[in-house]
Nucleic acid binder design. Structure first.
Length: 574
RNA sequence: CGGGGUAUGGCGCAGUCUGGUAGCGCACCUGCUUUGGGAGCAGGGUGUCGGGAGUUCAAAUCUCUCUACCCCGACCA
């Protein structure tokens, strides 16, 4: 393809508001352009990358035994009422009505539609297992779209659903999808990690997420370097740490009230009283069920894990911190001075906080804290639960050693749904005895458009994107220097272009009337893996120059050597 | 939705505090020169200053209001 015939609007400057590398580089390189918040136009280069990712996904899905179908984007509300999700989904579900006032929504996912399809077409266990997927535009009215393609409202997802008569059949499919996603990511040459995850509202069974490793990732991943254990921070059990003995001698300590003016944070209190943060306790006020309040207590150096807290009986779902004004109104004290002593709210204490022999906490009185507090003597019986985030160094749940942390971009998520949807929507398949049973179901999401951003995020340098060969918009980029002036250059470049295309290599020929510097800079920005530079300087010696986007040596080769050499390297099988 | 911020030519920005009729860089068009890492000179076009209302002799600038976008939090592929 000729650069001059293609819409590749590269930009010298980063667009205002773009924060992360993938967003900046995808816009600057002319891959995408924003239409509205969280929605993007795909320009020729971006579409090529997207299609490559789709192609790899399709190939691997086929290998895993999934069948491709295509389901509608606009879906009738009644299906969502059937599953009970019309009311549960909330404002993230974009709803609309047709001219007759009938209600619809824009598809954020397809459990309802696919389950309905199966209920109308699959009647016998002989038709199972059945593994269906499609690749389609999704719409989720995200509270806050951000980071370009990373968290868009309109995006392209591959979503798949499988149905099974029994557990072993389901487990085989789940394992096959796990393998399938791993293969997709391996083929793209990415560093990634599959982790145990929280199923959230989609299912209530087990689930695994696939993360592309990148510092800019929105998720914290926790793993054990000494074993296979890896999980999303949300789900990692945190051990109850024993108290570190200290010189104070807990037995002799009495509870004392001390003034702590202007010390409303753990750090301030710890500094003022000269005690470690780990010996202070923080009390967080959250909404309980039935609109009341409850208190969660953690060691000062620990963070609340909201996913764990939201699973606690008696705590409101969705989880939320109490409004500060409401706290002050009901407890008569600001959030900086709350403590468990005589608080009068239901308490849940994290295991590590509960293990403290004595501790410092708010005195439920402005500017006052207690020191020398002991649970049994001063607070009484409390409910103890694991509600904190694991921290680096905590022992792994499998006992293999200390945990390590990294950041990831979630690009895939597979769920065990059990019969949640098939039961709710009355799917009954007859088994060998002629008895109707609700099939077991799994669902498997993979963010195709998010992958584009994830790849760029993991694979770029200061000059631009460095596309892995499997997803690159083109195989080869010919930079023709001063081709407008030099007929030798333009002729050689055109011949090379034809030879490469004839050899089955997708080739972009930069034939624009631009100065060399502009072309080199754009070539780096766009990030095509192989570059061939055609210039008069080389042509005088009868050569062109070959170089990889990843760097390395410049090779001087005769023009006719290029196509065979690159074809052998890029498509060895062909 | 809560908190913070921004909106001025295609893109990136200054001008707003202190009201006087819009500017810079890049891009774009023409010509000449230049040509292996984002060229130089000369000339040129480009703006309902996000929308509406108000104050004023006069509004990009002050007031009110609406909208869009961005950042931090909850949500998720």
């Amino acid at each position: 393809m000729r650069f001059s015939d293609t819409l590749i609007p590269t930009l010298k400057e980063a667009p205002a508001g773009a924060e992360i590398a993938s967003h900046v580089l995808l816009v600057r390189g002319g891959f995408i352009r924003r239409l509205a918040s969280g929605s993007y136009n795909w320009l020729p280069l971006g579409l090529r990358v997207l299609k490559n990712i789709e192609r790899i996904a399709r190939e691997e899905l086929k290998r895993a035994g999934a069948q491709e179908i295509l389901m509608p984007v606009v879906q009738p509300a009644e299906l969502w009422r059937d599953s009970g999700r019309w009311d549960v989904m909330g404002p993230e579900l974009l709803r609309l009505a047709d001219r007759h006032g009938r209600e619809y929504c824009l598809s954020p996912t397809q459990e309802e539609v696919v389950t309905d399809l199966v209920r109308r077409t699959v009647f016998s266990y002989r038709q199972l297992p059945c593994n269906l997927y499609h690749i389609q535009t999704k719409f989720r009215d995200e509270i806050r779209p951000r980071f370009g393609l990373m968290r868009a409202r309109e995006f392209i997802m591959k979503d798949g659903y499988s149905f099974h008569l029994d557990e072993p059949s389901f487990e085989r499919a789940y394992a096959a999808m796990h393998e399938c996603y791993s293969r997709i990511l391996e083929r793209m040459g990415l560093r990634f990690r599959a982790v145990e995850a929280d199923a959230g509202t989609i299912g209530d069974g087990e689930s695994h997420e696939f993360h592309v490793l990148a510092d800019s990732g929105e998720d914290t991943l926790v793993y054990s370097p000494a074993s296979d254990y890896a999980a999303n921070l949300d789900t990692v059990p945190a051990p109850a740490l024993p108290d570190e003995p200290d010189a104070a001698g807990a037995e002799q300590l009495a509870m004392r009230k001390v003034p702590t003016p202007n010390a409303g944070t753990i750090d301030a209190v710890a500094t003022l009283l000269d005690v470690p943060a780990a010996r202070c306790v923080k009390t967080l006020i959250v909404y309980a069920e039935e609109g009341g309040l409850a208190a969660l207590v953690l060691r000062g150096d620990h963070q609340l894990n909201e996913a764990k807290a939201s699973r606690l009986a008696g705590i409101r779902r969705p989880f939320g911190f109490a409004d500060e004004a409401q706290v002050r109104a009901e407890l008569g004290v600001g959030v900086g001075s709350i403590g468990p002593v005589g608080l009068g709210l239901p308490l849940v204490v994290d295991g590590s906080a509960a293990a403290l022999a004595h501790f410092v906490c708010g005195a439920n009185e402005g500017g006052q804290h207690y020191t020398g507090v002991r649970w049994a003597r001063d607070v009484g019986e409390v409910r103890v639960a694991d509600i904190r985030n694991a921290v680096p160094g905590d022992t792994a749940p499998d006992g293999s050693g200390p945990l390590a942390f990294t950041r990831g971009i979630e690009v895939g998520h597979i769920f065990k749904l059990g019969t949640k949807y098939t039961q709710a929507m009355d799917v009954a398949v007859q088994d060998a005895d002629g008895k109707g049973v609700a099939p077991l179901m799994g669902c498997y999401g993979f963010g195709i458009s998010r992958m584009v951003a994830a790849v760029a995020e993991q694979s770029h340098d200061d000059d631009g994107i460095v596309w892995p060969p499997a997803v690159a918009p083109f195989d080869v980029h010919i930079v023709a220097l001063n081709n407008i002036r030099s007929s030798a250059v333009s002729r050689t470049a055109a011949t090379l272009h034809e030879a490469l295309e004839a050899a089955g290599l997708e080739t972009l020929l930069d034939d624009r009337d631009e100065r060399p510097g502009v072309k080199f800079a754009d070539a780096d920005l766009i990030g095509i893996p192989h570059r061939v530079t055609v210039g008069e300087r080389g042509l005088k010696d009868g050569v062109v120059e070959y170089r990889r986007r990843t760097g390395g040596e410049v090779e001087r080769l005769r023009p006719e050597e290029i196509a065979p050499k690159l074809a052998a390297m890029i498509r060895p099988a062909a």
